[in-house]
Design a protein around this nucleic acid. Structure first.
Lengths: 214, 214
DNA sequence: AGAATAATTAATAGAGCTATTAAACAAGTC
DNA sequence: GACTTGTTTAATAGCTCTATTAATTATTCT
């Protein structure tokens, strides 16, 4: 009956999934509708039948990715934990989510540069979400600061620091893998080492500063 | 006599410079030899006359960029300064150099993904330079650690931390500029704020950890 | 000046890509 | 069975790009 792999998913969805996979790997410009069609096992025109243009199809994929990235910052409440432990959990879960999608950061940055449509999508996503996401953290930070348990730092700065450290790991992963010839196991080890270091770095970096501010 | 802007530089150099500019802005795939020729003001075939292939021309540009990036890690000795002050200088000068070439990090990462040739160039550059670059820092870190002035951390981890924080600033710059509509002045202000925060973060992050390791 | 070499151009072959069009096919409905 | 609607395909127009070729112009050398 159905010609393609998963009996279930129709061609329309099949195309989206294959497009997702290929775009993630080679970026918008690196993939042709012909290539997508080949991998799906259908005629190239069918892609245009369902999605009209390549840009359109891409946008659907990209929006999904952005939604996922934003979701990483949503606060799962770890009730009853100290601020430090909560922060540690957040850093680690952010890191772990990236580790499960290691190509994602590079992909998004890449398209941000090469694909004019994307910056508008990113802009909208950010405008809608950032204030909401920093809000609760900001309150906690102020409490901790007043109690003398951390130095003064804005929620935005802290989030940028964490994001920088976490994401950079995955941006440079292709280099690491290639330069050191890492297999999957050693890659995972590298992840664990790096994750620990990042947690220590961030937690230590917000400890209160002595007043001897020569 | 000469048809093009700077009387001095011959066509060959002119082409290289224009290629540099355009590749930095739009990446390898985003630029055609036709476009380069137009901007130089010469015939498209001339580019192939001097550089044979587009890939060849690109490689010349890219190698220059890598050389520059590596040079950022070379240690200028600030004699007589404390370790902390020296480290601060290093972080700031790394940041400043990037601030003067804000498109460079994105460009390199971008090509790393899209342009198979580049990973080999990067690999070679790294293999040749990293051990040499971490060497002297490693020694200093050990001294400081023994003296109880910092926590234990490897030179590589510290360099990755600094690089992550600095580079990420510039990777997300296009987003910042677009989302907040930054002009040049406010961009510079943002740089200064971020630079200060990074210095504090890094210095604080390596302070010794109390033994109460509950 | 005239010969040899270098720089530059016009023209185009050859390839790949997107999007469109018109036709073929499948399946259900009356 | 003919009609309708949705799905899929083959064919191709039209574009852009790289690289080559052969011809033209400029420069250098003797």
């Amino acid at each position: 009956m159905a010609k393609h792999k998963d009996e279930k998913e129709g061609m329309e969805l099949s195309i989206l999934n294959v497009a997702d996979e290929l775009f993630m790997e080679k970026g918008y410009n690196g993939v042709s509708t012909t290539e997508i069609a080949q991998k799906v096992g259908c005629n190239q025109a069918l892609i245009h039948y369902y999605y009209r243009t390549k840009a359109n199809l891409f946008q659907k994929v990209f929006e999904n990715k952005l939604r996922f990235l934003i979701s990483l910052f949503e606060v799962s409440e770890y009730e009853g934990l100290s601020f430090e432990d909560k922060l540690k959990m957040r850093i680690e879960s952010h890191f772990d989510a990236l580790a499960q999608n290691p190509k994602l950061p590079m992909f998004v940055l890449n398209e941000l540069k090469n694909n004019p449509i994307t910056i508008d999508l990113i802009r909208e996503t950010f405008k809608n979400n950032v204030p909401y996401l920093t809000g609760s953290l900001e309150k906690e930070l102020q409490e901790e600061y007043k109690a003398g348990r951390i130095r003064e730092i804005s929620a935005l700065d802290l989030m940028i620091n964490i994001t920088s450290l976490n994401i950079f790991t995955f941006l440079t992963l292709p280099i690491m893998e290639y330069v050191f010839g890492l297999d999957e196991e050693s890659t995972n080890m590298l992840f664990e080492i790096r994750k620990k270091e990042i947690v220590i770095t961030v937690l230590n970096s917000i400890r209160p500063i002595k007043d001897s501010n020569k």
